[in-house]
Design a protein around this nucleic acid. Structure first.
Lengths: 214, 214
DNA sequence: TGTTGTGAATCTCTTCACAGCT
DNA sequence: AGCTGTGAAGAGATTCACAACA
């Protein structure tokens, strides 16, 4: 009752984010022994409309039934087929500060198909050991480890002044996706995907709409 | 050469985020002694088009000149008039883990009009002292401190299982904006603005587009 | 010439609304 | 009766393109 092997072009940006959220709820429902789920249930969980959920699932080719909704197990498989690389993807984190450690801890052993397998820092006191289940190296090992571990995703938790420079190093080493937490938008080549997650900007936006909304 | 006292309705969501980025570059340029700036310079910094920058600045009523571009000082004032509450806004952080500490450290003394003035945690070992320049309290003091300190923004860095419950407490205490780092979208009332910043979701999206983009 | 300010066109995303199914 | 799947409409955000200006 699911899948469909149409590879097609990349899915919409927003849809990909929501699929990740739907998958989380599906995991919970599976653990609770629920076999099926309706679009309005996924919608309530993700904070979107039921029509939005059905549209997203239509885009990925998932099929439901008017009486039973969507089959939880089949839907998890379907979303995995979209979100996960069958061969798995490995990520490296650069910058082992509080934020870096939070991410290492949070992702450790959580997603089998997407794991952080190496961390880097300029500070020798933090490297050449295992932190939060992840091997830590000095920066001069970066290119070598990225190649050896087949790392394709880089996570930047470095100061703003270092971000662009580190991004270029990761890109040169063969990484094709970057998630940047530094408050400095990255400039990358056309074959690299970079997303900036600027917490200062987000907090200022929350503060703005908190005032306007009241 | 700037401002304009039209209060009007709330500005577009995306625009607000970019204004925050423009302001950061403007601060750097001011420190470097530059008196003016062109839309294409702001654009290159923020990773958007020059037309986008001009559109954003038009929306907030900033004025430039064809020969000199925009006056840096006047533009900072103008953006401050939009982004900042004249009376200042105070935020509380709930959940003093690695992520919470990263945020406390990063925001400490950075924005005069938006500061984190209190932190909360269930763990008594982390409370009743100052961490990263911020006073830490036990959870049972939450409502009391929110009222006493006139806190209007809440930042959630708690486990997913606690997020909705903590959000409701903050909302009940009078907070009108929430920034949620837990991987669990918040449900809030119509007078509260909540934004979810889900790092797992974002990393999965980066991984997806990293594969597709290569 | 090179820039701003902006209407119009375009693109992307969301919601509506309803046929079709069980 | 209540749900899915989806064309069509709508809303929101971006880019185009060019007049006006210094």
């Amino acid at each position: 009752m699911t899948t469909s092997m149409t590879a097609s072009g990349p899915l919409p940006y927003k849809t990909i984010g929501r699929l990740s959220q739907y998958r989380r709820l599906l995991g919970l429902r599976l653990a609770m022994g629920q076999r099926n789920v309706y679009s309005h249930e996924l919608a309530a969980f993700a904070g979107v409309t039921a029509a939005q959920v059905r549209r997203d699932l239509m885009i990925v080719g998932a099929k439901g039934s008017p009486t039973k909704g969507y089959d939880v197990h089949a839907l998890i498989e379907c979303l995995g087929g979209v979100l996960d690389d069958p061969a798995g993807q490995r990520a490296a984190l650069v910058g082992i500060g509080n934020l870096g450690r939070a991410l290492l801890t949070y992702f450790h052993g959580r997603r089998p198909k997407l794991s952080i397998v190496a961390a880097f820092d300029v500070d020798a006191a933090k490297t050449d050991r295992v932190i939060c289940g992840c091997r830590c190296y000095t920066m001069d090992k970066l290119a070598e480890v990225v190649v050896a571990e087949k790392i394709t995703v880089g996570i930047l938790t470095v100061p703003a002044s270092e971000a662009q420079h580190v991004a270029a190093e990761l890109e040169a080493a063969g990484v094709s996706g970057l998630l940047n937490f530094a408050p400095q938008p990255l400039r990358v080549g056309p074959h690299t995907y970079a997303e900036d997650l600027d917490m200062t900007m987000t907090l200022e936006r929350v503060a703005y709409f908190a005032r306007r909304n009241r």
